[in-house]
Write a protein that binds this DNA or RNA. Structure first.
Length: 499
DNA sequence: TTCAGGGTGTGTAGATAGAT
DNA sequence: ATCTATCTACACACCCTGAA
């Protein structure tokens, strides 16, 4: 109120100065108290003292006496040097001296206070330093413990985990020597290699590990046996020895150079890689050899192909999400919605257009055509954005580097996963972390008849996204297509909350 | 019309993580 | 150690585009 233009802190300083002036400096009250019981108060106090007190207080408190004592005017102005006046003068001098003595004493007390405070600060500082030292030692110990744990983890997992991708130079070397020792033609493709190995599944007589054909030793591991079987162990050891010997020769011969990195050039690493590869090949050979196994293998391969296709489409859709966000800024979390397991146009396929196999898979999947149209619409919009981006050829100047894209005037509609690539289980199943759809992804009517379907709340923007999209976010072609889809959606969504 | 260059869709081997 | 599902990297065939 009195200092409207000053921040509160400034006002505080002023009030404190006033207090110091009246109570502490003139009368010496409370100094010891403040200094000894409250460090913060003491500090503030001493700051006020050093900065302001000498000018303000000494001029007001002592100058009248000092002036009288030292100014020549004091004597010149005195009319008579009689006894009374001398006594008065002496009295004044004595008073002044007494005041000075008092003040010096007070200053002494004050200095003692400051020294005490200083000692306490030093003690506090020492305590803090000790604390920091203890903390640092603790952190160092934790770091050491962590590194030990990490070492142990590496050692235990190193022997069992597949480390092939950590040794990219070593991998082809191991594979080549592996097949060399088996006598497999280098020119053969993967399928023919498997065929070759399947033809040689019969164990050799007398537990032999090697047969000699045209003067060449050919190894015959027992693929159906455990990796620790003595013949398999011998074969793996042979591969490791050959890889090691080759590399050693390379390194010792001045005319040649090392083929692998120093990390690869390690018996344990080579052995682990070889074992891992042996298991891989053994599993394939035994599957090929056995009728049921072969069927299983084929099924697995088909699943992989389907999955790869779905993943490819999901990845392409991910690329379109940033542009989608530009067009629909409130569509928070759109990226999360694009899940490999969710999106496929087969959800909207008419049953009579599907093959028998696809019908079977859809049945097992239990996701009827009308159930997920709202979500499918979202995916189609991503597809269209993606097509649009490609058609535009990234012509906007800030895109780097300019992609040389062929111009396509009529984007094809067939962007989605084909019906033949559909999975045979519902989207949430079969994953370590199941994919759970958001409630707004599915149509309310479908959800009502599938009460067991687990859904999450959120992504409210999906609702009605459609009708907004029709209003000119896309090219003429795309808009026409979306109109088509919107009409279809309206049919499938009886609640009509999308329009 | 031909053809090189490159985009697109698809298939495959193998890696990886987690469960058993 | 083994099995399973998921994922990555790469290869290849097809076909469109644009220049010669």
């Amino acid at each position: 109120m009195s200092l409207p233009n000053l921040p509160f802190a400034e006002q505080g300083v002023h009030s404190q100065l006033h207090h110091s002036q009246s109570a502490s400096l003139l009368f010496g009250e409370g100094r010891t108290q403040h200094g000894s019981t409250n460090e913060l108060a003491s500090r503030a106090h001493s700051v006020a003292l050093h900065h302001h007190a000498p000018i303000v207080d000494y001029s007001q408190g002592y100058s009248p006496h000092m002036h009288q004592a030292h100014s020549p005017l004091a004597f010149h102005n005195t009319p008579l040097c009689n006894e009374t006046s001398i006594q008065a003068s002496l009295q004044t001098v004595q008073n002044t001296l007494q005041l000075l003595v008092n003040e010096v004493q007070k200053m002494g007390v004050r200095i003692t206070d400051l020294e005490l405070a200083n000692q306490k600060h030093l003690a506090d500082q020492q305590v803090l330093t000790d604390h920091i030292k203890t903390t640092e030692e603790g952190v160092q110990k934790i770091q050491e413990d962590l590194s030990v744990v990490s070492d142990k983890t590496n050692k235990t997992t190193g022997a069992t985990k597949n480390i092939s991708n950590q040794h990219l130079l070593l991998k082809p070397i191991v594979h080549t020597i592996f097949y060399d020792l088996l006598g497999v033609e280098k020119t053969l493709g993967h399928e023919d290699r498997m065929k070759y190995l399947v033809e040689r599944l019969e164990p050799l007589p007398n537990d032999a590990a090697i047969e000699t054909v045209d003067g060449t030793d050919i190894w015959r591991p027992l693929w159906s046996e455990n990796i620790k079987h003595k013949i398999n162990a011998k074969f793996i050891q042979k591969v490791v020895d050959c890889v090691w010997a080759n590399e050693t020769a390379n390194r010792n011969n001045p005319g040649r150079k090392a083929e692998m990195s120093n990390e690869d050039y390690d018996h344990k690493v080579i052995e682990t890689m070889t074992k891992s590869y042996w298991r891989n090949i053994a599993s394939q050979v035994t599957s090929q050899a056995d009728g049921a196994g072969l069927v299983k293998l084929r099924g697995k391969q088909a699943d992989k192909r389907r999955w790869a296709r779905r993943a490819h489409v999901a990845n392409t859709r991910h690329e379109a999400v940033p542009e989608f966000h530009k067009r629909f800024p409130d569509a928070e979390g759109a990226m999360v919605l694009v899940d490999t397991n969710f999106g496929s146009d087969y959800m909207t396929f008419k049953d009579d257009k599907l093959s028998e196999d696809s019908k079977r898979r859809r049945k097992e999947q239990d996701v009827p055509a009308s159930g997920w149209k709202r979500y499918v619409a979202f995916l189609r919009m991503l597809d269209l954005i993606n097509k649009g981006l490609r058609v535009a050829g990234e012509t906007s100047g800030d895109e780097e580097p300019p992609i040389k894209c062929r111009k396509m005037d009529t984007p094809t509609k067939g962007f989605d996963v084909q019906a033949s690539k559909m999975a045979d289980k519902s989207p949430g199943l079969g994953k370590a972390k199941p994919s759970v759809p958001y409630k707004t992804m599915v149509n309310p009517v479908w959800l009502a008849v599938h009460p067991s379907e687990e859904v999450m709340t959120g992504m409210e923007w999906l609702q009605g996204l459609y009708s907004r999209a029709k209003k000119g976010d896309f090219t003429v072609h795309d808009t026409a297509y979306l109109e088509e889809l919107a009409a279809e959606l309206a049919d499938g969504d009886e609640s009509g909350d999308d329009s």
